Computed example of a mutant assay.
Amino acid sequence: MSTMYAALLRGINVSGHRRVPMAELRTVMGELGHGDIATHLQSGNAVFSSESGDEDSLAAELEQAIDAHFGFPVDCLVRSGAYLAAVAEACPFPAAELEGKQLHVTYFDQPVDDARFAALDAGAFRPEEFRLGERALYLYAPEGLGRSKLAVALGRPAFTRGLVATSRNWNTVVKLVEMTRD
């Protein structure tokens, strides 16, 4: 039985660098044998179906195919539709009351705990806030990500060392949940 997944590509199509046209990405994914392929926006969001149940193997396979096709490495996270829905449902902030640009989810390749961020004085960034979820971090940034001082602090190597992480705004989080419903 096939499962719907989302592939979250990190750091592509930013300021004309590391260009990955979505039509070519769909072709690459089709050549890997995936079905029901669709992309969302130009920022590296693709959904697909696969018989495999191993997210890490699917991500590694896609990373290799992207490197071979485009000539540069791209970190990829692959997450099931069920996981994406659970992350959206577990949001600790009132998502329905916020604009999509005010709420973000950073997806991680592995679990993270509060100890990783213990040295961060979160209170110094109010009204911005963050909370941890399952392999995810929720960020409330009332002025948006581009003006968020907390997002900059959370992205420092002291907090991200050893992680693959990629962020999506709430509108994209919701759209990927819709696109991966089985």
Results as ranks from 00 to 15, higher is better:
residue 9 L to M: 03
residue 12 I to L: 04
residue 12 I to G: 09
residue 15 S to D: 11
residue 16 G to T: 01
residue 19 R to K: 15
residue 19 R to M: 13
residue 25 L to P: 03
residue 27 T to N: 10
residue 27 T to P: 01
residue 29 M to H: 11
residue 33 G to Q: 00
residue 39 T to R: 07
residue 40 H to V: 09
residue 44 G to T: 05
residue 48 F to L: 02
residue 54 D to C: 08
residue 54 D to S: 12
residue 55 E to P: 04
residue 61 E to Q: 15
residue 61 E to L: 13
residue 63 E to W: 05
residue 66 I to K: 08
residue 67 D to N: 15
residue 68 A to W: 07
residue 71 G to I: 03
residue 76 C to V: 15
residue 76 C to F: 09
residue 78 V to Y: 04
residue 85 A to R: 08
residue 85 A to S: 14
residue 87 V to D: 14
residue 99 E to M: 12
residue 100 G to W: 03
residue 102 Q to E: 07
residue 104 H to R: 05
residue 106 T to G: 11
residue 112 V to C: 06
residue 118 A to Y: 09
residue 121 D to Q: 14
residue 123 G to P: 00
residue 126 R to P: 02
residue 127 P to T: 13
residue 128 E to K: 02
residue 129 E to K: 09
residue 137 L to Y: 00
residue 140 Y to A: 12
residue 141 A to W: 05
residue 144 G to D: 02
residue 148 S to T: 07
residue 148 S to W: 03
residue 151 A to R: 04
residue 153 A to Y: 00
residue 153 A to M: 00
residue 157 P to Q: 13
residue 158 A to H: 01
residue 159 F to I: 03
residue 160 T to G: 00
residue 161 R to F: 12
residue 162 G to K: 03
residue 163 L to R: 07
residue 164 V to F: 03
residue 166 T to H: 03
residue 169 N to K: 02
residue 170 W to A: 09
residue 173 V to G: 10
residue 174 V to K: 10
residue 176 L to K: 11
